[in-house]
């Protein structure tokens, strides 16, 4: 069996295994794992929202955690304080993230490091509000007892049901994301990443496109924020901390920037280290730092990138071998 076939088989097995784990996690009998898997899915979606800007458009945002938090707080406030029906609360959550994105979108006028700094500052604004405006956000106590979502008499009654709901929504939005990336608009974002001046010379309005990408990114982050509020049932300033934005950027970098699966692989690693390694090692951030340094230095295309490179190389080797065999056969004739 050739190396390429072995790699393909490995990839297929890994994919099937991931699918099986996704399906049966709630039956592992430990709510800890179910909650953890749900968080991996939610943060994977948040990571995708960052990757849309980071890898596909060439902008490095530091405020997607803010969109995530705005959506989560909106849902929590509407559900707990006003008893708004879940579909409306959820839509309001996504919309509030989108509106925040439309306002913060002015940052696309800055480029490079300045874009990072502006989005960092804007993101911290949301964090400041979540900590200081106690009357609105509950301050450090946050907003507790967010119910599971319901639709009329249908109510999600358990973590297991919630988990499947999260899985369904995340898969749906991941497919939608994949479609956006492959669309003509998505291709134009790649063009902006590679050369803004050329895009301008071709007649594109680069600033408008970056702005639209930014707002789309904020909507995806908002979906993740809504799911977070309903799953964790508690929203505090931890949701708006800079760490969320940073981790959401690290996930695609670790897993494989520009790929849908990469964001989720990164989410498995980071959420895993944060929740599992921290159980027996108080110095778990050191582990996180080491993993990050090793991946960035030795696998700049992320873990999925190692796999893809290996596959490409063995495919080429196979092709070369085939060509050589053909030459020998022809020479013999």
């Amino acid at each position: 069996m050739s190396m390429a076939r072995a790699l393909r088989m490995f990839g297929t097995i890994a994919l099937v295994l991931a699918g099986v784990i996704l399906l049966i996690t709630p039956y592992a009998g430990n709510p800890f794992w179910t909650g953890l898997m749900a968080q991996i899915l939610i943060f994977g979606l948040l990571a995708l929202s960052v990757d849309l800007l980071m890898r596909h458009t060439g902008l490095f945002p530091m405020c997607n955690g803010a969109f995530f938090a705005v959506a989560a707080y909106t849902v929590a406030m509407l559900e707990v304080n006003y008893g708004v029906a879940s579909p409306f609360a959820a839509l309001a959550g996504i919309a509030s993230a989108g509106v925040t994105g439309m306002v913060f979108g002015v940052s696309v006028r800055a480029s490079g490091v300045y874009f990072i700094l502006v989005t960092l500052a804007l993101g911290q604004l949301v964090w400041g509000v979540s900590v200081q405006w106690t009357w609105l956000t509950g301050g450090d106590n946050g907003i507790t007892n967010v119910p599971y979502p319901s639709l009329g008499d249908m109510r999600i009654g358990s973590l297991t049901q919630m988990y499947y709901f999260v899985a369904f929504v995340v898969i749906f939005f991941t497919l939608l994301y994949r479609q956006v990336i492959r669309s003509p608009f998505g291709l134009s974002l790649n063009g902006i990443r590679d050369s803004e001046s050329r895009m301008t010379a071709l007649g594109f309005n680069v600033t408008v496109r970056k702005y639209v990408a930014f707002v789309i990114s904020s909507l995806f982050a908002g979906v993740a924020g809504v799911l977070y509020a309903y799953t964790v049932q508690f929203v505090s300033p931890a949701a708006s901390s800079l760490l969320i934005s940073v981790e959401a950027a690290l996930m695609p970098i670790l897993g494989g920037p520009g790929t849908v699966f990469g964001a989720f692989i990164g989410a498995v690693i980071i959420i895993g280290i944060r929740n599992v390694v921290s159980g027996f090692l108080s110095g778990w951030p050191i582990v996180m730092g080491l993993v990050f340094i090793i991946v960035v230095l030795f696998a700049p295309k992320g873990i999925l990138g190692i796999f893809n490179d290996l596959l490409r190389r063995s495919d080429r080797r196979d092709q070369a071998a085939d060509a050589a065999r053909k030459d020998v056969r022809e020479a013999e004739q």
Binding site: V180, S183, P184, F185, L187, S188, L202, G203, F204
Partner: peptide
Amino acid sequence: LQNVVLAVHGRARGARRLFTSWQ
């Protein structure tokens, strides 16, 4: 191909669609 597709779109003020693939 992607390079030139972008050029075609730029001229035609296209590449506004989100839900079809460029191919």
